[in-house]
């Protein structure tokens, strides 16, 4: 801090010290005392554990219960040599990609619909948030009922049009679809909120001009609204990708990774390695990999956006 700044703030602070010094802390220390609990809590619960976890991924106990030894990158080289890791990574790609496509498509459709109905259906916009307010487990219970092969609504509706619906959650091909839809269902309220916020800021004179020039509804959406919505689309992509890549709750509550591992994403694999196989350090290597992948993906989205000159 420069001398002039120091001088500028001095009278204000000494005045404050005169008045408050006796009651709360000592003037100069007050802001530190005030912010200390927050910094401590955040460090203890978030910053330290995540760094400690990364550090611990370099250790390993030769056998369960024995003291851990430093092994360098062994957990990582074992991880990359494990076919389970690669199949989990492949499923994660499918899961995250599926959620991004379904989530963004539905998010756009629904936010356009809500934008059009402004004023008339305010309650509808509020109600759209409901899936975000419930736990992953409750969402899983709901979707298990919905996709149940004996009593579920989906198969009975499919039945009325002559389609014999699959046993969704016990099928290795279809279970992932249900997981994707459940995850999107819990995450989409935020996407809608973001996109709707973006739509509201678009200057309608562009759209009026296009209308005057005879652009169809589709043309206006394709060449005006969606490009103008790009910053919000970037943010929602980053957020959806983060939420699905690191999300464990929905998969765990809905399928537990099954049937036969067909919905075991990386996060689920990490949980299995840690809390079923009790190989905590090996699990931390997977967790660290997820963190790095998440950072790389986020940078990737931002870079792609920059290339198209979008400032999110």
């Amino acid at each position: 801090m420069t001398a002039t700044q120091e001088q500028k703030k001095r009278p204000e602070q000494s005045k404050a010290r005169e008045r408050n010094g006796a009651q709360i802390g000592q003037g100069r220390a007050t802001p530190y005392l005030f912010s200390f609990p927050a910094i401590f809590a955040v460090s203890a619960v978030l910053a330290f554990p995540v760094l400690y976890g990364i550090w611990q991924s370099l250790y390993r106990a030769p056998e369960l219960g024995l003291p851990e030894e430093f092994v360098g990158g062994l957990n990582y080289s074992d991880m990359f040599g494990d076919p389970d890791f690669w199949s989990a990574l492949y499923r994660t790609g499918f899961f995250v990609g599926g959620c991004l496509v379904v989530g963004t498509a539905l998010g756009l459709l629904f936010s356009f619909a809500l934008y059009r109905s402004i004023g008339r259906l305010r309650w509808m916009r509020a109600a759209t948030l409901a899936p975000y307010l419930i736990s992953n487990v409750a969402a899983a219970v709901m979707f298990r009922l919905l996709f149940n092969s004996d009593l579920g609504l989906i198969n009975s509706v499919l039945g009325t049009v002559g389609i014999d619906g699959p046993a969704w959650l016990s099928s290795t091909t279809w279970a992932m679809t249900v997981v994707i839809f459940t995850q999107v269902w819990t995450d989409i309220p935020l996407t809608i909120l973001l996109l709707l916020g973006g739509l509201m800021t678009i200057d309608t004179s562009y759209l009026d001009a296009a209308l005057v020039d005879g652009a169809s509804a589709w043309q206006r959406a394709r060449y005006l609204t969606i490009p103008l919505l790009a910053p919000q689309l970037v943010i929602s992509t980053v957020w959806l990708s983060y939420s699905t890549l690191t999300g464990l709750g929905v998969v765990l509550a809905l399928t537990g990774g099954g049937p036969i591992g067909s919905t075991t994403t990386l996060a689920m694999e990490m949980y299995n390695v840690a809390f079923r196989a009790l190989k905590f350090n090996e699990a931390l290597a997977i967790a660290t990999f997820i963190l790095i992948l998440n950072a790389v993906l986020t940078l990737g989205y931002v870079r792609v956006a920059r290339r198209y000159e979008i400032e999110a």
Binding site: V45, L46, T246, L248, M270, L291
Partner: peptide
């Protein structure tokens, strides 16, 4: 200090699950 308070918000819960359990 403000940055130090806000930045950890980016840490996903999957990153702290095992460390918090062991702590």
């Amino acid at each position: 200090l403000l940055l130090f308070t806000l930045l950890p918000r980016l840490v996903p819960s999957i990153g702290i699950l095992v460390p918090i359990y062991r702590l």
